[in-house]
């Protein structure tokens, strides 16, 4: 059995990237500590998932903005 031939589809990749950007916006704008903490954790996990799929995106903070404490 192999999963080598069942990669993320282009549509799924876009979905992942879109979610990532939406959460970035939310992390910047949201003032509720509990929500903001959850979003930042989700962002960290999504970043790892995107990277594992070799997606080119703003990997380091400052490349496109957010990620301040």
């Amino acid at each position: 059995m192999t999963n080598a031939n069942s990669p993320l589809t282009a549509e799924q990749e876009q979905q992942l990237l879109r979610t990532y950007h939406e959460l970035q916006d939310l992390a910047q704008a949201c003032g509720v500590p509990a929500v903001r903490a959850a979003v930042k954790t989700a962002l960290a996990e999504l970043r790892t998932a995107l990277d594992g799929q070799a997606v080119d995106f703003e990997y380091y903070p400052g490349q496109a903005g957010v990620f301040a404490a």
Partner: peptide
């Protein structure tokens, strides 16, 4: 064979 991240692990 199964991979955690098939794309990164089997990339040419």
């Amino acid at each position: 064979m199964e991979y955690w991240n098939s794309k990164a692990e089997t990339m040419p």
